[in-house]
């Protein structure tokens, strides 16, 4: 398994392969700023919750690295995880009925973390395997296991992500694209890559 590309988003900006693509320091609506800077036209973006928005923006950068010979429609697996599930949207939906007295269907549909993988599949016409895991922190061993399982099932590429949108404002989105290959990916390499971004 070989990492082809990786990206990171947090409120200060978006990075691709450790190079800053757009800094959003001091921007109040930083997700919108990244979207507008991306040149991508996808009006559905505005309806998405923050988990989906971050994953969408990252995947728009990473999908360009998928080799042309890969059967993306069938052989690309999505492996995502976080700690806080859909906490931020859950809180907003809870407020819609508990505070505003009107449960909001458009918020409710985003109260599941795997909605973001659905959004990526719709955007890219990916019909492959998806799974969303909950773990206490970024768990490189979990990702490496799941990538290996996906390859065992006949997939040739995995888009993996660790995506958090918490009520305390601590957003982050680490995505990496992995290709089936003879090379080994070890836990330390993956952990270090994530930590490098965390410290930016």
């Amino acid at each position: 398994m070989r990492i082809l590309a990786h990206s990171y988003i947090q409120p200060n900006g978006i990075w691709l392969n450790q190079t800053c693509v757009k800094s959003t320091v001091g921007e109040e609506n930083w997700l919108k700023a990244i979207y507008q800077n991306s040149g991508v036209e996808y009006p559905k973006f505005y309806k998405m919750d923050d988990l989906s928005k971050m994953s969408f923006l990252s995947s728009e950068l990473l999908r360009k690295f998928i080799p042309a010979e890969i059967d993306q429609e069938n052989e690309l697996a999505l492996i995502f995880a976080n700690h806080s599930t859909s906490q931020l949207t859950d809180t907003k939906f809870h407020d819609s009925y508990a505070v505003q007295g009107n449960p909001s269907p458009s918020l409710f549909v985003y109260t599941l973390p795997n909605i973001l993988t659905g959004e990526l599949c719709i955007r890219n016409k990916w019909y492959g395997e998806n799974c969303f895991y909950i773990s206490e922190q970024f768990d490189a061993a979990l990702f490496i296991d799941q990538i290996q399982f996906a390859f065992n099932h006949g997939n040739s590429c995995c888009l993996c992500g660790w995506v958090e949108a918490k009520t305390d404002g601590s957003h982050e989105c680490f995505l990496f694209l992995v290709l089936l290959s003879e090379e080994k990916l070890d836990i330390n390499t993956l952990n270090n890559l994530y930590k490098t971004y965390k410290n930016e």
Binding site: T85, D90, N114, C131, Y133, I134
Partner: peptide, 27 residues
């Protein structure tokens, strides 16, 4: 609004003392 899955980990640990942290799937 805090951690919807913490009680799952605690209960499995306290009631069963399982050897590995549980893998949680929410899809």
């Amino acid at each position: 609004d805090t951690d919807a899955f913490q009680s799952t980990r605690t209960i499995l640990s306290e009631e069963l003392a399982i050897a590995h942290a549980p893998l949680i799937i929410s899809n």
